[in-house]
């Protein structure tokens, strides 16, 4: 039971972190100046974005929940959790971020999810 709760925490916080990062970076707009000063300005602007700070917070929860999960469950159980988050995030990217997820991306995500499952075998 404890492992399932931790697994839910890992998947939920990973999904929230990634969706928030994507949402906020889309609002920020494309970073085009890749010189040192341009990158510095981009990093300074990113540090002021509240949703990005929240995303880092959820990423930290995901990290520590994963550490706790692998202490109480097999790695072969813990790793496919990341595959579940890939599928869930793609669904949310379509529904919340309004990304046009075509058949090629669905197939690609499906192959990656199956591949991650096999890697943990």
């Amino acid at each position: 039971m404890k492992a399932w709760i931790l697994l839910g925490l890992v998947v939920g916080s990973t999904v929230l972190s990634d969706v928030l990062q994507s949402f906020e970076m889309k609002r920020h707009g494309e970073i085009t100046d890749l010189g040192p000063s341009g990158m510095g300005r981009a990093l300074a602007a990113m540090a002021r974005r509240k949703f990005l700070i929240l995303a880092v917070f959820f990423m930290a929860i995901s990290f520590f929940a994963f550490i706790a999960l692998v202490q109480s469950a097999d790695l072969s159980f813990a790793v496919p959790a990341s595959a579940a988050s890939i599928v869930l995030e793609t669904i949310l990217a379509r529904l919340i971020l309004k990304e046009a997820v075509d058949a090629r991306r669905w197939w690609g995500v499906g192959l990656v999810a199956c591949g991650v499952g096999l890697l943990s075998a």
Partner: peptide, 9 residues
């Protein structure tokens, strides 16, 4: 930074 122009999916 990559997410500033690339889709999450």
């Amino acid at each position: 930074m990559l997410l500033s122009w690339a889709d999450l999916s």
